[in-house]
Write a protein that binds this DNA or RNA. Structure first.
Lengths: 187, 187, 187, 187
DNA sequence: CATGAATGAGGTTTCATTCAT
DNA sequence: TATGAATGAAACCTCATTCAT
């Protein structure tokens, strides 16, 4: 049953590197060290791999975020913890994170099939922050700032534009977002 | 020579909707109302269309941004003008903007072939803001906030998450970014 | 009416360089400096060019050989003159000669449509030499030696293996063939 | 792995009959009894088949010639043996021989990629004959006579111009060439 | 479970030919 | 006569998928 996981692993790498359509079943098979036919012992189709990968990693990030948010007491801890957890995941699973973005871009319409979407947790958090009076900015805009910044920090780190150790970057980003979105807007 | 432009137009639509690899030359030909072979009287290859489209729209946004920044006097006008110009372009050319993002994601390595990249203008602007003491945040992080937010505002507007008229959204985003990145950080 | 000849001229060059199928109508048009469509003002099809070129040059060589043979008195003059005329033609019209060989190789079956084939003159000459007792070798073999040698001398001259001026080479070849085929075999 | 050889076999037949460019991959597939796609499981491209075929048969003839020459004692045996081996090969592998000639005509420039070229062996033999005083004719011309005659004898046999059994023809040709090139020229 | 050969649909590209201008 | 855009058939090649072994 190990092979199944290897397939998912190598497919993820390839998809995130080259794109989904530009990765062939043969590419995956070669990376795993088996033949094309063997892939079909474990998956019905290439598309199944595509979906399973998205669901898998989407859920992993969702769970991590949920645990972080639920495990924190006050709003600031919830918020900063979520940001750090998010970036932690992205830094530790760059391929998964890249892949999720690619999937969103090309198969955006099919995302609704999945239940546990990290985005919804961030959205809920921001809405709660707004309701509790911590946030003054309109929640949609705050959400745009947050999700956009997270994606870019990840990209810029990979491109070498943002430097430093992962932990530091995650902490810095969390502090900055809290500062500019919450403290900044205090009347 | 009209056909050439039609091909670019329809290819852009399809690429931004379905992705590059998932759009066939036949798709493009059908959309234009000609046969596949006719495409090759105007372009040497599908890839040439792909590159030309990126260069074309990249340069259009670059020029708009450059004119906006160069035409403004003080820092605040430069900054807010750039943000508005950027979103204006994205809202008026959603396909082009989406396409540019997709291209970045899948052919990121080939971006360096192009000279006039909008990103570099934003980068220069942020660096200048930092140097003139207007900005306290580290420039790389500010850049992440700006570019990330812009992309997300565009996406959320298209998804119906962010509502309002284009002008308003652009203005609001510009004001917000200036407030949280500049005024907020005043010591 | 000049254009028609230019088309034949350039087509000959290209066919002899790259082959018939590997030369496109567009190649020819470009070489002439007109467009593809214009070719069809002068020829019904590419194949018409192919046939006309073979017939044209085949006949030119045929005529030259015939005049040379008919204009000579004795057997030796006829033979050596024919050889020299043949090589003269090949050296002065290398493209035509190469083309005729290519045509023979790829469309050999269609050669019979043409009346004035140089080969038949050489064949007649050899048969006459045999009948008149000048030649002792069997005529088919003599013919093989003659035609084979002529083709190779041309090729080797072009490849730089055989050196010297054209006239000399032609003379040398004529002398050699006469010597080895006629004088040699004297009982 | 049988299929791979079948593909080479049928491709050779078709190439030698109709030419390389005029034979399609589908032609080959049909002859073998498989689909076009299957060809590409065994070869990367049509061109790979083209090259492999030339290399394969070129080397086969080269080896046969080398063994014949190296296995003979005196010059006459070497020479006559080489001629007979050459024609033997051509008569037994008419398609291969025809194909090699076609390849030379159309892809002459690419021949240098191949190491074991029969021509070079004949050239060496003639040069050695010259050096040892057996041959009086200039070697380049002798070479032209030999290679040209061999090709023509093959062609004329196929066309029915030269008659007789293969062995006889090969022997006759060998004797004739030795006689006219060596004995004939004795001072 | 895995192989590896094969399929068949479909992709990009080429090219002889046509035709309105 | 010539242009240049277009056609349509066919070329080479790719690839997800199937299947006998």
């Amino acid at each position: 049953m190990r092979t199944r996981d290897l397939i998912l692993e190598e497919a993820l790498k390839l998809f995130s590197e080259k794109g989904i359509k530009e990765t062939t079943v043969r590419d995956i098979a070669r990376a795993v060290g088996i033949t094309e036919g063997a892939i079909y012992r474990h998956f019905d189709s290439k598309d199944q791999i595509v979906y399973e990968l998205f669901g898998l990693h989407s859920e992993r990030l969702y769970t991590a975020l949920k645990e972080s948010i639920d495990g924190s007491e006050d709003m600031e801890a919830k918020f900063k913890g979520a940001i750090r957890t998010f970036l932690d995941f992205a830094f530790k699973n760059p391929e998964a994170f890249r892949y999720m973005n690619i999937f969103h871009y090309l198969r955006g319409g099919e995302v609704r099939r999945f239940k546990k979407i990290p985005f919804s947790l961030l959205k809920d958090l921001v809405v709660e922050m707004k309701r509790s009076g911590v946030l003054n900015t309109e929640p949609e805009y705050a959400l745009a700032v947050i999700t956009g910044t997270l994606e870019r920090v990840f990209l810029y780190k990979n491109m070498g534009i943002v430097k430093g150790r992962r932990k530091e970057i995650a902490q810095k980003t969390a502090d900055m977002l809290w500062r500019i979105l919450v403290e900044c807007s205090k009347s």
